[in-house]
Amino acid sequence: MSGTAVPMVRAERVRKSFGQHVALREVSLTVVPGEVTCLIGPSGSGKTTFLRCINHLEQISGGRLEVDGELVGYREHRGRIRELRPRDIARKRREIGMVFQRFNLFPHLTALENIIEAPVRVRAERRSEAVERGRALLARVGLADRAGAYPAELSGGQQQRVAIARALAMRPKLMLFDEPTSALDPELVGEVLEIMRQLATEGMTMIVVTHELGFARQAADTVVFMDAGRVVEVGPPATLLTAPTHERTRAFLSKVL
């Protein structure tokens, strides 16, 4: 229904400050449905903060932020912007999957239980159906045989794959990845990126905060370079990563590559 006309995410001069500290200064960005956007930049540049604003884990201080044509965390009523009730915020979050740097799997639940928890409790899916789908998702991330394992019994890469399956179980229309491979041992990074690449080819809209420029080059449709709370440069990976226009981007890439 929404079609391609409505952007999945539209940020207009979004500001965010924590007390005195300004994390985001006027970030404007549009994410088209079905595309993969990679946010890159030095630490402290506001990439993660911006990502967390998109599903309202952080509340923006200024500007306008829309997901699929609807304001994040607010509603408009007679020309006034009003805060949403927690219930409505939660309802909107169901449609946005998030994968964390530190996995944040529920340690007291098995891999399968982690995946079916929200579908059963939040979306009121029947347990048997949720289990069936959970197993299919586990198979999709290559962990069909680890359904009964607790997170502590899984490697970092396996945990992150379960976390991706958990987010997908809610059938999100947008997936956010917050440095999904930064907490992994180098040899485990590949298995997680492989799953993400698959997702991208299946047409999932993804916003990925990452330091993996190789992944950005291969999988991203758009790369966004951020620095000091601003979007410095936006472009397709081929252009931005090889021939950046801005000096700041060039300096960053020369250090990372």
């Binding site: 599903n55 884990l57 927690p86 219930r87 939660a90 309802r91 909107k92 979050r93 169901r94 946005i96 999957g97 998030m98 964390f100 530190r102 944040n104 799997l105 529920f106 928890e117 929200a118 409790r121 939040v122 958990r166 987010a167 809610m170």
Partner: peptide, 16 residues
């Protein structure tokens, strides 16, 4: 705190 965040991101309410 990451546990609460992960639950929130899945759309779970505060009570749940």
């Amino acid at each position: 705190a990451g546990q609460t965040e992960a639950a929130s991101a899945l759309g779970m309410s505060r009570a749940l």
